[in-house]
């Protein structure tokens, strides 16, 4: 049976892992490679690395850390941030990343999704969506350039429409980051994830809001997502990976077991 995935997310800036609250005030958490290795050994099913400055910053970003991760990690990993062209994506994939995640550049140039699909295949094209629940209008709104507060802007897209659009263009997976929940550890946005799940036929990854093991159980059982992404609860040691996975297994959520523990 296909297991649900637990995905620690490491936000990267200048080759270091950082973490902010609701996309702001980033503090350094540690070096990338040892942290990545630690998560892989602890039982993470996949890792995501977001180069958070890249998308909102015009300079060329050093991505040599991608191949340093690929050398030591034996689970899949995805790289996000600053990938604006097929050439950028190819460079990251050749360094050993399994998938590339596109967010703001896909909103600026949606054809990029089709191009990536045609050149590298649907399996490696992940679309990240930063979605904000506007309580005044009751709408889910897509934002871009969220890596830099001064440039963050609302797009013309409503989230469910953008989810449909990226699928029609060849997205292989969608990571839905619910901005209202990000970094505050109050639980995933189950209502929003359920709404997106209804229109999402490719794997859907929940992001933003994990604070307790119960939140993971809820998001798998209630929103039927394929994976749950989280950062601070892992970086700060609030949730232990082994305990999380065994609790999810007991709750009836399919989890990967290591070799020899079938």
């Amino acid at each position: 049976m296909l297991a649900k995935r637990i995905i620690p997310c490491l936000d990267v800036r200048d080759g270091k892992v950082v973490k902010g609250v609701q996309f702001r005030n980033h503090e350094i958490v540690g070096d990338i490679v040892p942290l990545a290795q630690r998560y892989a050994e602890a039982g993470a099913d996949e890792l995501v690395f977001y180069d958070i400055t890249a998308s909102s910053d015009q300079r060329v970003v050093d991505k040599s850390w991608v191949s340093r991760i690929a050398e030591v990690i034996d689970i899949p990993f995805c790289v996000a941030g600053g990938i604006r062209s097929v050439t950028d994506a190819g460079r990251i994939l050749e360094m050993g990343a399994d998938k590339i995640s596109i967010n703001s550049p896909a909103l600026t140039n949606p054809d990029l999704i089709n191009q990536l699909h045609d050149v590298y295949g649907q399996q490696c094209v992940v679309i990240g969506i930063d979605s904000f629940y506007n309580a005044d209008t009751g709408q889910y709104e897509v934002y871009k350039f969220t890596g830099d507060e001064s440039r963050t802007q609302q797009t013309q897209w409503q989230t469910l429409d953008w989810v449909a659009e990226v699928q029609s263009r060849g997205a292989g997976e969608i990571v839905l980051n619910c901005m209202n929940q990000d970094g505050v550890r109050q639980g995933y946005d189950l209502a929003q994830l359920k709404a997106v799940r209804d229109v999402c036929r490719v794997p859907l990854i929940a992001s933003g809001g994990a604070g307790t093991i119960e939140h993971f159980i809820d998001v798998f059982q209630q929103a039927d997502v394929d994976g749950a992404l989280a950062a601070s609860v892992f970086h700060k040691g609030i949730i232990d990976m082994q305990e999380l996975k065994s609790t999810l297994t007991q709750a009836g959520v399919a989890m990967r077991k290591p070799l020899g523990e079938q």
Binding site: L2, A3, Q122, R201
Partner: peptide
Amino acid sequence: RLPHMGWNTVTPTQDEGLFNGIPAGTY
């Protein structure tokens, strides 16, 4: 959902050669 993406269990038809030490149900 497609793509079939993630960790799934594999059942070898024999337990030697390529699947030596890899029991049915390995992810």
